[in-house]
Amino acid sequence: MFNLTRLLQTLTDALSLGSLYALIAIGYTMVYGVLRLINFAHGEIFMIAMYIVFYGISLFVLPWYVTFALTILITALLGTLAERLAYRPLRSAPRISILVSAIGVSYFLQNLATVLFGGRPLNFPQIPLFTDVLIIGEIYIQRLSLIVPVVTAVLLLLLLLLIKRTRTGMAMRAVSRDYDAASLMGIDLNRTIAITFFIGSALAGVGAIMWGMEDTRIRPTIGSMPGIKCFIAAVLGGIGNTGGAVLGGLLIGFIEIVTVALFPSLSGYRDAFAFIVLILVLLVKPTGLLGEKTTEKV
């Protein structure tokens, strides 16, 4: 049970899954930061990205790098489009309306995917460069498991640079700090929010490519569970905080993999862990692990 091989194997799996969760959670936390909106459609945009890869490689036989670039671009545009059409008109409406709208987009995309792509699972294309299995000593690792954390780390670094060092990033921080004041200071809200959606959705696209290669069976409902879990991850780390989303994602990944490794009989309940952790953390620390305490002023 407690041998080194098994331990390393488990930790690699956990790191890989956790990084994927982190990538998707960033999209939730960024959008929540600027709009105070749970973007329910994020999981569905993530799902559509997988189908784009499938059609790019399996149907149009494009090289993988072209497909990946196209996927990320289309996904990012799709996210931005959803904001433009379904969220922007409701920005001044009661908050419940925009939440319903987000649910509408999510439900619509899922139903549309069922009609367009069929309800049966499709086999995600395998790309040897990523999906080959490496054998190090006695450990069997898909190359992907090592690539995922590296990609996530690099993207996170770039994102943090963008947020901390560029004017756009400064605008994003300003909008998330105080929406109205930011617009009074001459910040173009529409542009800043659109960019936020673009980046968040692009990251979901990257996440989807790697998720597809690990999961291998894609179906229209594939985005729902990761969607819920990653929002939970973002809340866990402190919603609105990019570092917190990564921490939350990694934490949920580790908890899921390690618990199942220690107690295999619990594997059926795996999807429930994130939720239980959320409830426990909220009881102790309502703003999440890295969240700031905010008081609402009148």
Binding site: A86, S101, G104, F108
Partner: peptide
């Protein structure tokens, strides 16, 4: 689902 969106929008 499209109708839901149209109504809320």
């Amino acid at each position: 689902s499209l109708l839901l969106l149209i109504i809320i929008l």
